[in-house]
Design a protein around this nucleic acid. Structure first.
Lengths: 194, 194
DNA sequence: TCCTCCATGTAAAAGGTTACATGATTTG
DNA sequence: CAAATCATGTAACCTTTTACATGGAGGA
């Protein structure tokens, strides 16, 4: 029953996932998190308080985050992971990407991967990239098949837009291949030194 | 005042934009549109009726779409563009991509571009791509600058994830460059034949 | 007749955006 | 003291998701 509850609770948005990851690095306040989203060129999340504070409350209600109300100085609620939150976070990080993840939830995958190095043994990131690359290349082939059949009915800009989609998956696949090579080299290389 | 109302009404979601584009090609029913989203490997829209039918109603309420209730056979409501809808659609297609479009609304840009060839003179697509490439390359430089300053504080997978983001913008920029060349060659080439 | 697909929708809930509200604390 | 910034939130609105409801047409 507990395992089942865990599984159901797995459904979290990409924003919640990013919040979990950032809080897992260090205790942070809602304002800290807003600033990170606002001043970091990445993670296409908005710094809107109307998204972040409710998301933090949801995660707290789930029992994954707890808020330390800091006493000294300014009023500040520092969030940190609970044991259950840490478990859920690691379990989510550890899942291998599925085909649907690669096609529809790329943001989430990249968040998971970005935090993976800090939280999981290096072999997991390698496995992650292998699955990622496999699904991405498979999707490229699907898209090419569709294109071969339908390109004739498309306008020139339609074809170009479609090609751009294909190339973007291809570029991700190639990134995954090269990233995996780098991780594997990093794991072996430094130890062999001297 | 009328111009102002037009400008305000410009705010449409990517889904609504895709619907406008598809309806501009040919009169289509809600079911047709759902099927296109369901059976096309592209355009990351869901075929959920709860999204499409309300969106069509919104566009109809705005006066951009009208529904012909087809008489013969099955009950079918075929939507087509009104004159105002066609004007709004062309105006939206014609806008040059901004920096924020490239960073945060890439889906929308690709939809606009895909339909651009059917609706606008070829020069517009070339201008679109030039602006797109310029903003994408500028963003790549911004990201590289950030990376140079912050890579030291990132984990290895964090760095790799960041690089993947940079490469994805770079790949889009290169696509735009090559697509523009192809459009320009296509515009000149065939006419010079013989 | 029954079942399956065609075709259109609604209802409830969740998530995000925008804009506004509220104080406390530095800084000039 | 005034202004800016820190920090937390709420309210209204919109869109999307999920699931359900409805009914006609055509074939077995």
């Amino acid at each position: 029953v507990a395992a089942c509850a865990d599984a159901v609770d797995f459904i979290v948005s990409a924003l919640e996932l990013a919040l979990l990851g950032l809080v897992s690095q260090a205790p942070r306040s809602g304002y800290d998190l807003r600033r990170i989203f606002a001043h970091t060129p990445f993670s296409h999340f908005s710094d809107s308080p109307g998204a972040i504070y409710p998301a933090l409350r949801r995660l707290a209600r789930k029992g994954w985050l707890m808020a330390d109300s800091a006493q000294g100085g300014r009023r500040r609620r520092l969030f940190r992971l609970t044991a259950a939150g840490s478990r859920a976070w690691h379990a989510r990080l550890g899942r291998e990407p599925t085909r649907d993840d690669v096609i529809w939830r790329l943001d989430e995958l990249m968040i998971r991967f970005a935090f993976m190095g800090e939280a999981l043994p290096p072999g997991r990131a390698v496995r992650f990239l292998a699955a990622f690359e496999r699904h991405a290349r498979a999707h490229v082939e699907e898209l090419r098949g569709y294109y071969a059949q339908h390109a004739a009915n498309m306008s020139e800009t339609g074809r170009l837009a479609f090609e751009s989609g294909i190339e973007s998956y291809l570029s991700r696949a190639e990134w995954a291949e090269h990233a995996r090579a780098r991780l594997e080299a990093g794991a072996r290389g430094p130890q062999r030194k001297s």
